[in-house]
Design a binder for these strands. Structure first.
Lengths: 215, 215
DNA sequence: GTCTATACAGAGATAGAC
DNA sequence: GTCTATCTCTGTATAGAC
């Protein structure tokens, strides 16, 4: 009997987990699409296809739900980082990460961070799981930034955490939606320009005096 | 009697206009501080010191009120542009405008445009006064951008309207609040870095001819 | 035009049956 | 754990006296 009960129990757990995943995924999408204030719990429940009351069995409230969604997003970043090829130079890693976050944004997916003035900022400050994950990826990225600075690819005049913020901020850059709403450019073009203007802005200044051994 | 009635009438008009200005100013501040969704009409009325119902005598609704606030902001930009010294080179004008918008943002004032996903975007699309003013300053700034490109100060590879968006987007850049919340840097430093990374990103690429085997 | 008081709608959250 | 039905609060908007 145990041989039957065990899988049964595991199955229920899996269902439970899968449903929570579905809820978080829907919340994540709506959060990215409409923002924290405009998103409603009813919409999330409807998107998943469950009743709102059922959702509240999984999450204590809207804040909790959205915090879980943000954790979910950061964990995706963690996986992306972990999936990077081993030998890649730091600058290429940064470039790939930037491209990926902008692509997320252009495909209406969840941005890594919130647009400014989000009411979610407060609750998120007290979510330890989020803070821990964010801290983890920040440390990782800061390491790459240091390497890129030593390699002369990023201006050493900029503090590493400023570079970090500048990169992450591109994932919620109003520039992307502005250009998109204009309707005259393709997503690929927008992506290129966004990356180009961002990276050029962080790059070490050009060798103005034809610096001898530079670059 | 006319000599008395005329001033009396004008006085009332002035009062009316002044009150509307006060309402718009308060709305503008709260809109910049909390965003469209989080801001409430009650707060605006309380800030001005009038009853909510009185406010509704001046503006048809929240959308109207916020649209008026946005028009107010764009008109400030118009005045700033008009106040620029005559002989200033185009690039200096762009730099001054960028600095000004970032300073607005750092002093918790109203950004020129909304953070992405604002519910105000829809109503604003149908506000002719806003669109007209925005169009006017856009044309002006686009002129400067063209000059700066011809002068080799901004990359000619970037379409002028992309440059325009990139500049305006800095007024709602999450980078600013991120660095600010970090608490380790002064507003002056943040301003410098924000301008530097933005302008470097738009600048024409370094004279590669000077470096024969460059990159 | 300004006020007080109120209607109305939407959304977060909960009760209780199954 | 999931559902339907409901509570409650907040926020937009309005009615009606002055």
């Amino acid at each position: 009997m145990n041989s039957l009960q065990q899988p049964r129990h595991s199955f229920k757990q899996q269902m439970h987990h899968a449903r929570e995943e579905a809820i978080v995924a829907a919340a994540s999408r709506l959060l990215g699409e409409k923002g924290f204030e405009a998103m409603t719990v009813d919409e999330v429940a409807a998107a998943v296809g469950i009743a709102k009351a059922s959702l509240y069995k999984h999450f204590a409230g809207k804040d909790d739900l959205c915090a879980a969604a943000m954790v979910h997003v950061v964990e995706r970043v963690q996986r992306f980082i972990a999936a990077q090829p081993a030998g890649l130079p730091a600058m290429e890693r940064l470039r790939a990460l930037l491209r990926w976050t902008i692509e997320m944004q252009l495909s209406d997916d969840m941005p890594i961070l919130l647009s400014r003035n989000s009411g979610l900022a407060g609750p998120l400050k007290e979510c330890e799981a989020y803070q821990a994950s964010l801290q983890q990826i920040s440390a990782q990225i800061l390491g790459w930034i240091g390497e890129a600075q030593q390699a002369g690819q990023i201006s050493p005049a900029l503090p590493p955490d400023v570079v970090l913020c500048a990169l992450l901020a591109r994932s919620a850059d109003p520039l992307l939606t502005m250009l998109r709403d204009r309707g005259t450019y393709s997503d690929a073009q927008i992506l290129d320009w966004a990356m180009e203007t961002c990276l050029n802005g962080l790059a070490a200044r050009a060798p103005q005096a034809a610096a001898p051994g530079a670059a």
